[in-house]
Design a binder for these strands. Structure first.
Lengths: 259, 259
DNA sequence: CATAATGTTGCGCAATGGGCAACACTCATT
DNA sequence: AATGAGTGTTGCCCATTGCGCAACATTATG
């Protein structure tokens, strides 16, 4: 998909500023007009007017009658349009649901978004334990099974560009060096699937396989995830093959997931 | 939530035009610059530049290198931010998951969005039959259990404003008159839950109950849905009470779902 | 080949975006 | 109670930039 903010080829400054507000609110959660104005480097009256335009279209909501702002449900409506058209075109939902039922865990489809992974589809498994929603989440590449699958087959320069900005240790097994990551990606290419074993969050496991287009390019990742108490080392191989099989059913078609 | 497009109080014209493009693409699926320009009443060079700003921020994608445009995955990322912050604040996920497991069907939370219903959360039930995703979908109020619950307790003028633009018969049992709808909403108020029995789609059933804030105002609807082969008339009452119980667990708090 | 249709981009004018300043409102302090 | 600080909104007016014209590039068709 497009970069978060390219050089301003063929753009409109005021529109770009308004869309920058959305990014700021995505990071901040909620914010006041004066704070946003400082972030944008504009006067607060300008920030207020730009915010007004976003408010009028439901892309932001006011936290109270007069005051702080946050991202609005209008975005959910628009994003629902994106994901349902993906479902309609790719026919992926039947396959992901079958996989979720077969392995009993949550299933996602994810794409590469610059040097991050974006989760664009989700089927929650039937397990009773409350798991967070990954849909629409953006995570680093190096500590996720999806990130490994999405980067393992990239050429070297692209693979370098997809590395994380920081090698922060997020969980007990987080990979924190280039050498270790390259060795892991070699293993992914050999196995045809990736495992993230408590690398992004303690107690959180994931196994992912690549979805490929008609030219055999990796376009998305199919992943199952759950707690370490249910996904054990002795099962990685069998589960990896099951995920690969489902991913292959999603493969061979034009790139629906557009990056 | 905010209206789709208010009178332009405190707004910026070019930003509003760019956001109008998002709405057009949501309706159209994909579109060329010239078509969008005609819709907006601007020159195609203007439409191209507005589109460029949306493209730079990932809110639209190009279908090919040079040509048609559609809504982009950047919207999924932003919407994911909205829904995960709703989960975090409301703690609704545990309750909706438990309900999905208990009744074996898909569970959603929905809000009133002008005279439409917007689905803002979803847990898919463990059933094997492939069901569509409701998350982010916008549907009419009169033929959905959620729409009935969200409008039943409104004052008369607001209830009138929430009626559908057209009374098109969408399925075998679609309500197609004001009198029939008012009678149905009276029944909903009496029962405390709503049933949609093949009213929006043939073979599709739903049962919904209201989620209320600390002032007992209805702020969202909790709904279970599935095919008519699994949700039968003899079970409406029992299921209605189960959904009411779960909705009451989500009630009594400030309005997380913001309308 | 020519033509039609589409999307992109340089240029320059004037419409509107944006800063200034005033206002409205809330909250905290004395 | 009054005052001050901080915030968001809005009228006014100037100058920046949005936008239409026109040229160009690309693709598809006959």
């Amino acid at each position: 998909m497009g970069n978060t903010h390219l050089a301003d080829s063929s753009s409109v400054q005021s529109v770009d500023r308004a869309l920058a507000i959305l990014e700021i609110l995505a990071q901040r959660g909620e914010s006041g007009v004066t704070e946003i104005a400082a972030d944008l480097g504009v006067h607060k009256s300008t920030a207020s007017r730009l915010m007004g335009a976003l408010l009028n279209r439901g892309l932001v909501d006011q936290v109270s009658d007069r005051g702080r702002y946050r991202l609005g449900l209008g975005l959910v409506r628009l994003a629902g349009n994106v994901t349902s058209s993906l479902d309609a075109v790719s026919g992926s939902r039947a396959i992901t649901r079958a996989l979720a039922t077969e392995v009993g865990e949550t299933v996602n489809i994810a794409v590469l978004d610059n040097n991050r992974v974006l989760y664009v589809d989700q089927v929650v498994g039937p397990s009773m334990v409350s798991m967070r929603s990954w849909l629409g989440q953006s995570v680093p590449t190096h500590c996720t099974a999806t990130g490994k699958v999405l980067t393992a087959w990239l050429d070297k320069p692209e693979r370098i560009a997809a590395r994380p900005a920081t090698w922060k240790k997020l969980a007990p097994n987080t990979i924190t060096s280039v050498d270790a990551l390259e060795k892991e990606l070699e293993q992914v290419r050999k196995q045809g699937f990736a495992v993230a074993n408590q690398e992004m969050e303690a107690d959180f496991m994931a196994i992912a396989a690549p979805i490929r287009d008609e030219h055999d390019e990796v376009t998305a990742a199919l992943v199952i995830s759950g707690p370490a108490s249910r996904i054990k080392a002795k099962d990685f191989d069998a589960l990896g093959h099951i995920v690969k099989l489902s991913a292959s059913k999603l493969s061979g078609n034009p790139n629906y997931w557009r990056e």
